[in-house]
């Protein structure tokens, strides 16, 4: 039986009816035509589908769309107004942080969520002092971005891009 679903995606409101089996990722891509979120593995193992839901990064392939009824979803496209670039978009370009670009929207959303987490002093497993302030060293960035795989292996430049964005947003 179809259930009604209300989502705000990149600032735009949508009302639709979905089969309960629909994941958030499939609702975005197949139902709403939002192609910014990518499907890599569909099993939580690659991060290509990462979006921000009410400001927090999530794997949209492992969430039922109905769980997030009423939520605000932001994809990489929604991080900046149409035709403009966010800081992360700019630093990814500046640092040449991709090749094919397929993982990039997920990387960018993950980085956006991660920078927020770090700003709130959320520790990671490589944080020496669990109670101290967070310094985003390369080791911290690598650990915090480990949920996003890049088949092109652009990792070195992704770390540089995220690091530059972290610097600029300080």
């Amino acid at each position: 039986m179809a259930h009604s679903l209300h989502l705000t995606v990149d600032g735009q409101e949508h009302k639709l009816a979905v089969d309960p089996r629909t994941t958030l990722l499939d609702a975005l891509r197949d139902r709403l035509g939002v192609m910014s979120a990518k499907k890599g593995c569909d099993h939580g193992q690659c991060g290509a589908c990462t979006v921000l839901v009410d400001g927090r990064r999530l794997n949209s392939c492992l969430a039922l769309a109905l769980t997030h009824d009423g939520s605000e979803v932001t994809t990489s496209d929604g991080l900046a107004p149409a035709g403009e670039l966010s800081t992360l978009h700019r630093t990814f370009l500046a640092q040449d942080a991709f090749q094919c670009g397929y993982c990039t929207p997920g990387q960018v959303c993950s980085a956006a969520g991660m920078l927020q987490e770090a700003a709130e002093d959320a520790p990671s497993v490589v944080t020496e002092d669990l109670e101290g302030p967070i310094e985003l060293s390369d080791a911290e960035i690598r650990e915090r971005m480990s949920g996003n795989l890049c088949r092109c292996g652009a990792y070195v430049n992704i770390v540089a891009a995220v690091s530059q964005a972290a610097e600029e947003s300080r």
Binding site: G44, G47, T50, R56, R57, L58, N59, L62, A63, S110, G113, M114, E117, E120, D121, A122, P123, S124, V125, L130, E131, R144, M145, S146, G147, N148
Partner: peptide, 29 residues
């Protein structure tokens, strides 16, 4: 849970164990 100040202070082992699992975005869910 991993970021809760009380858990970080009183049960650092639990924070570490949580943070060593899965990925940042999976732990958010």
């Amino acid at each position: 849970a991993a970021a809760d100040p009380r858990i970080r202070r009183r049960y650092p082992m639990l924070s570490r164990a949580l943070l060593s699992g899965a990925s940042g975005q999976l732990r958010n869910a």
